[in-house]
Design a protein around this nucleic acid. Structure first.
Lengths: 287, 287
DNA sequence: ATCAGCGTTTAGAAAATCTATCGGCTTCGA
DNA sequence: TCGAAGCCGATAGATTTTCTAAACGCTGAT
């Protein structure tokens, strides 16, 4: 393409619409001198005369008509694309792990909808931390050792990670509280963190062959609810099932974790009170 | 429209094409800092992240993909318009599918140049029918069920679609002619139309697990030329390879298709004898 | 550990864009 | 015929945008 100043095309388009540089200047919040200069320069770049100038305004030359038609089409394409890009109205995307979605978010969907009735929440499930920067209207919730290091992001610690062992209330077991040694002799359900396996190796008790492995924490927890054994998971992931008495807590991992759960969002979009309110709501649900 | 700097869109388009800011900067004769700043400012204006940055270049975010698609279309319209504006131009743009370009047009390029020595042909590859109207000096070739319905376009049917099965002359196979049942037991190569798969399901013969799938007809045909199996494609796409004995015809699909191949052009440019002559030439190459 | 290749940031220079002002032209009504 | 209104163009200088050069940081390969 000729090295045409595309911004000048927009100016030309407005002029062509009005048939009057003065009115076009008003619409563009420019002086009519600026508009005149812009069109003149564009004509030089394209090598054609676009406008017939007169005492009662301007009209398009045949080349100007063709240019105007093309620019209209092109700007319409861009207009449509940009109207929807990043602006999905009142839509917010939450990037979250699948188990956190299942065990933390889903039980709070009604609470979310009640508090934010006009916000459409899109949940995007990820198995790893997002590699890319967050865009407008995107929030992420992730376990990690530190807040988000991406300087374009705001970040906030939601909670520490405290692992507890849970099972179905009907699950046959010795009385509470229970020692670890005894605990490890029971059917154990673990996720990818493999905490039970580590404890078995550390203590020399229990049997790794009796472990049931799941690639999602939520699946291990659902198996526990089903009475298949004892699962171990972070408190924030089980508290809803505890409250509903689908699970009971039978052991607390004494080993402190330096992991935490964090939320992050795109900093650029300052003053977006609804993003701030959503982040505040998420944080409040972890208090 | 958002008050987006349209010149920055051109910068973005070049970056998106290269997947590398440094190379884009070179093409644009800018420093890479200038390019980086431009994209950053554009992202702020649009309110979205367009690029995922990395140590080995950049890739597009979903929003970046959408932006790139729109910008490409918009710039193509402008490019085409400006290429001819003010010129009693000798340039013609042909919009065509990639496989039709590879298998029908490329083998005829010398014939075209011989017949139209002063016309510069620009080939623009598309995977779908163009949504927009054709401009001056634009011709399109498309498969479909009817002529172009755009009232601004002229249109003409080039040929019906007759599918035939082809393979390399060296490909081991039973003697010609071959029954369909036998044919379907062979390694089969198909494109997005999935004709082999349909035949397998219709007849109960053959094995869908032995199909090799390609997203371009030309790729399936090239695999057939390479001796990897039997491809099925429209006659107009294979006839050149048949003539050059790179492929042989081993079966004709008895099922008639109501699809045809059509060409269309912009009606507005009446009296353009050279457009008429090009359209006539295209049609003659299908007789 | 080092290097190459990538992107980002910043200060200041260069270029583009704009404003304010002056001027000219055409058309219309008195 | 003259004056007014409404239009566009040119120019000097102010303002803003864009760019360069340099420095820096990160990632991946060796």
């Amino acid at each position: 393409m000729k090295n045409v100043n595309l911004n000048a095309l927009r100016v030309f388009s407005v002029v062509a619409s009005h048939g009057n540089l003065q009115r076009a200047a008003e619409e563009l919040s420019l002086s009519r001198g600026a508009v005149s200069q812009r069109i003149k320069k564009l004509e030089i770049e394209l090598g054609v005369v676009l406008l017939m100038r007169g005492a009662r305004g301007v009209s398009l030359t045949p080349e100007g008509e063709r240019c105007f038609a093309a620019v209209k089409d092109a700007l319409a394409i861009l207009d449509t694309a940009f109207a929807s890009i990043g602006e999905d109205g009142d839509r917010v995307t939450l990037h979250i792990g699948s188990s956190t979605a299942t065990k933390w978010l889903i039980p709070r969907m009604d609470a979310f909808k009640a508090k934010f009735p006009k916000i459409s929440l899109t949940t995007q499930i990820h198995e790893q931390v997002l590699a890319r920067s967050l865009g407008r209207n995107e929030i992420a919730i992730w376990p990690g050792k530190a807040p988000d290091t991406n300087i374009a992001h705001g970040s906030r610690r939601l909670t520490g990670i405290q692992l507890i062992a849970v099972c179905s209330p009907d699950f046959l077991r010795p009385d509470w509280p229970m020692g670890l040694e005894m605990l490890l002799t029971m059917p154990l359900l673990q996720d990818a963190h493999r905490r039970w396996e580590k404890l078995i190796h550390e203590t020399g008790h229990g049997d790794t062959h009796k472990l049931l492995n799941f690639d999602r924490s939520a699946l291990a927890l659902d198996a526990a609810i089903g009475g298949h054994g004892v699962a171990i998971a972070p408190t924030y992931m089980v508290e809803n099932d505890l409250r509903s008495k689908r699970l009971v807590e039978i052991w607390v991992d004494p080993e402190a974790s330096d992991d935490g759960l964090y939320t992050s969002w795109a900093k650029d979009h300052l003053g977006q009170t609804r993003m701030k309110r959503i982040v505040d709501w998420i944080a409040s649900e972890f208090e």
